[in-house]
């Protein structure tokens, strides 16, 4: 090979290495700790409601949303971030409580419970990571229900602490949809 080609290859190699390094640097700063379903540049189709309906892990929550009359909200045009308790989370409620919640006389309480898992706007894993870093290890999110959730990290995992001090972990990748994002959690978040 001519010297010029070697030089070009060398420079290319250095530049590529530089780019990779900056990508890694970006990832360590921004790092999607839980991963995401979002593809770069794509606006996802389907609503939060549809994502839940299609999930094996959230059938109890889907039932709760129906019982509270909030299906149109989660399938609508306004943006929300939902910390979605999985079936196991509902299973942790004291015996019979989950069933009690679904009854019509519990509607106000069920609505209050669901809105305590709902945050305005779209807060992705990456947004959370940045905010946690800026906040020196934690960040607070105001819920639609009026209380505050504190998000922090334990290792690579996101941890949500509710107003009562109860903790839940974010499980798996986030699901970005047309009207917001879903983070699956393994506990029910209390408002107080």
């Amino acid at each position: 090979m001519s010297n010029r080609v070697i030089l070009i290859l060398a420079v290319s190699a250095i530049m590529t290495a530089g780019c990779q390094q900056s990508d890694e640097a970006n990832q360590s700063v921004t790092g999607n700790v839980q991963g995401t379903n979002a593809k770069a540049g794509e606006v996802p189709k389907g609503s939060i409601g549809q994502a839940l309906a299609g999930s094996n892990e959230h059938s109890t929550l889907v039932q709760a949303v129906k019982a509270a009359g909030l299906e149109a909200t989660l399938a609508g045009s306004q943006p929300y971030t939902l910390f979605a308790p999985n079936n196991a989370a509902f299973g942790k409620l004291p015996g019979g409580s989950a069933d009690e919640l679904m009854k019509s006389e519990s509607k106000a309480r069920l609505t209050a419970l669901i809105t305590n898992h709902l945050v305005p706007g779209v807060v992705t894993n990456e947004d959370l990571s940045r905010a946690i870093e800026r906040g020196g290890g934690k960040t607070q999110l105001a819920t639609m229900g009026g209380s505050t959730l504190t998000i922090s990290k334990e290792g690579n995992a996101l941890v949500v602490t509710d107003a009562k001090g109860g903790k839940a972990r974010v499980k798996g990748a986030e699901t970005l949809q047309s009207n917001g994002v879903v983070h699956s959690v393994d506990g029910i978040l209390s408002s107080g």
């Binding site: 009359g69 909030l70 299906e71 149109a72 909200t73 609508g76 045009s77 306004q78 943006p79 929300y80 971030t81 809105t115 709902l118 945050v119 305005p120 706007g121 779209v122 807060v123 947004d127 959370l128 940045r130 905010a131 800026r134 906040g135 960040t139 607070q140 999110l141 105001a142 819920t143 639609m144 009026g146 505050t148 959730l149 998000i151 917001g180």
Partner: peptide
């Protein structure tokens, strides 16, 4: 049906952002 929920937080020009809006959250 309930088509939208609001926080009801009072947010106007000149006010300090309420607690819980540290993270960037734009659609």
């Amino acid at each position: 049906s309930v088509v939208a929920l609001l926080t009801g937080n009072s947010m106007g020009v000149g006010q300090v952002l309420p607690t819980g809006y540290d993270a960037y959250n734009l659609p």
